[in-house]
Nucleic acid binder design. Sequence first.
RNA 1: GGCGGGAUACCCUAGCGGCCAAAGGGAGCGGCCUGUAAAGUCGCCGGCUAAUGCCUACGGAGGUUCAAAUCCUUCUCCCGCCA
Length: 403
Amino acid sequence: MTVDALEQQFRRLIRNAEHVVPEDDLLERLREGRPLRVKLGLDPTAHDVTLGWAVPLRKLRQFQDEGHTAVLIVGDFTARIGDPSGRSITRPRLSPEVVRANAEACVTMLLDILREDHLEVRYNSEWLEPLDLEDILGLTSHFTVAQMLERNDFAARFKEQRPISLIEFLYPLCQAYDSVAVKADVELGGNDQLFNLLVGRDLQQAHGQRPQIALTMPLLEGLDGVQKMSQSLGNYVSIRDRPTEMFGKLMSVPDGLIGRYAALATDLDNEGVAELEEASRIGGPRAGRAKRAMARAVVGLYHGTDAAGEAEAAFDRQFKEHQAPEEMAEATLPAGAVDGSSVYLPGVLSDLGLASSRGEARRLIAQGGVRVDGETVVDEQVQVERLRGSVVQVGKRRFVRLI
RNA sequence: GGCGGGAUACCCUAGCGGCCAAAGGGAGCGGCCUGUAAAGUCGCCGGCUAAUGCCUACGGAGGUUCAAAUCCUUCUCCCGCCA
């Protein structure tokens, strides 16, 4: 490979990265011309791939495309122990079978992004399970409490006098040991993983290995624009969301995030990203158009450009022309709800999951948030004929067709 | 191990015998506005087909009282100081 080509590969690989520690070592290893072992850890309790999680995954895919080996570490052992992080109640321990099944489902989903060649999937129980206490004490001896407290969230919790379980100190060690076990050249992760990745370097060195390069990707903010995208917060887009849903969710993102999404969740080049970012700063209709372009690019990435175009058209039908969407959930009128010729609508709404309770449904109706075939419902009792075959809408985006 | 403090709805927090389904803030939801953005604005925000009604709920279990989120006992968990 020419020096130039190498340099370009290097630029591609570090593009958008938040930290590359140390950068020059990555270039050096690329020069060796061998496939690098690029590790990425996977928590098998997650069951959906969000756009946020896709950021490091897509980076891993880039490495694959350059001929390097993706080493996917399934944290089956650690999942079995349960992470007591923060104040959250200790997760129930999962049985090995359940973890395994989850993990396999996860890996399958990851193949939406990763390629099947240049891929190595490893379960960390393979090397963590056989460790005995002596081995574990040996691992801990390489680190000090002060080192552990360097980690931001530990430092913060310590300062605020919130509990830190000892087991939490062991997690970075387990993860670091994974790096030793698979002889990683590079480990990828979200930026919140930086500390753990650096622990991996130290531990590899302690085991006489060349320390891995830690490459972290920015954490993508969720739809709310504030917190990081996560399944538990419900502010996420799944890469398996239907095109229309994906497009719609992306259109609800705050303006300030357009550039960020464009950079991290699309395959637009730097100029394209800069253009959208600029437009989003200007605001007004230009920002709206920039957001559309971003949404189209994301949907296009996972569903193809045709689907993206259709999603945008469907979006306009629904929100500019206020037509019901073409595809929506269908449901039958719950039999119990019918009383003679009229129906108690709050009961129907809560049975269909459009409202969390009958009281909630009644409130929605009272506030004018419920429509049948586009017409705002005023009364709680509704004629059966009016409902049969109708489209029931709650709020702006929840639709169900009754059949 | 000793002593002290604490656990309130999704989160943070007030209440400290009846006026408490529980103040305030955040999050969330709905209407208007709009670019399904932000800001703004009006409203909702435990459940029950009306209710000045009933049920469930202030960490768990008991108790005192006509009446308990509030008092007592005990258990669990958290925090602090001392060791």
